[in-house]
């Protein structure tokens, strides 16, 4: 089982990185929005609250291109049958989930330094900031994995994915934004509890997805 997951993951990385379009577009999108905000703001500095709202909105929308792609690609290139015949349901789901975790992390590694650099963000509590980013990323990528599978069956219409994942991700975004504001202003108290909330949320979401996945993946 574990080796099967790694086999799938390795395949996904190979395929994605040999044809980098999806990842490149996500990263380019992230970079451009960050720049655009900074440019149009013209050096005006925002309050921590606005800064964290924008940071998460940028991350949310740039991730939208990539998170569903891992499943949409299988349908577009019509390889999903090949995958289905050759690996078990569980390993498909878990490898895609891991891929999305890593993908979101890569995205954050690109966005956050750019964002901090261009928008003169002053992070007062780096530890909390980091924890919120990582755990929020886990929460977002775990809830979107199964939604990506659903969308891929609907012909992978890009904006559909945003529409169906937005109401589900709202609690995550809300909490992420408040906690990031805390991290920027150094009011660390509630923030650490929120990381735990994210992990619990991801746990619930992953187990539900795991149960539902077979109804979506198998025709």
């Amino acid at each position: 089982m574990l080796s099967e997951i790694f086999r799938n993951l390795r395949k996904d990385f190979r395929v994605e990185f040999r044809n980098r379009a999806a990842i490149n577009i996500s990263i380019a999108f992230a970079g451009i929005t960050t720049l655009a905000i900074s440019l149009t703001a013209g050096g005006v500095s925002f309050s921590p609250r606005v800064q964290s709202i924008m940071l998460w909105i940028i991350m949310f929308f740039s991730a939208m291109n990539g998170l569903a792609h891992i499943f949409i690609r299988e349908e577009e290139e019509r390889t999903s049958l090949f995958l289905r015949l050759n690996s078990s349901l569980e390993s498909v789901f878990l490898s895609k989930l891991l891929f999305n975790f890593i993908f979101f992390l890569i995205l954050q590694v690109v966005i956050c330094p750019l964002y901090i650099f261009f928008l003169q963000v002053d992070v007062k509590s780096p530890l909390l900031f980091l924890l919120i980013l990582v755990s929020g990323g886990i929460a977002i990528s775990s809830s979107t994995t199964i939604l990506g599978a659903m969308v891929s069956k609907a012909g992978g219409k890009g904006s559909l994915f945003t529409v169906i994942s937005f109401p589900i991700l709202l609690p995550v975004l809300w909490i992420a934004i408040t906690s990031t504001t805390d991290a920027l202003e150094k009011r660390a108290s509630a923030g650490f509890g929120n990381t735990l909330f994210f992990l619990a949320f991801s746990g619930v979401i992953i187990s539900i997805s795991f149960l539902l996945f077979k109804y979506i993946w198998v025709e």
């Binding site: 809830s143 199964i146 939604l147 659903m150 109401p167 619930v204 539900i208 109804y215 979506i216």
Partner: peptide, 12 residues
């Protein structure tokens, strides 16, 4: 798929 989505939404 639609039923899965409803269940998924109901849990969140």
């Amino acid at each position: 798929i639609c039923c899965s989505y409803l269940i998924f939404a109901m849990i969140t």
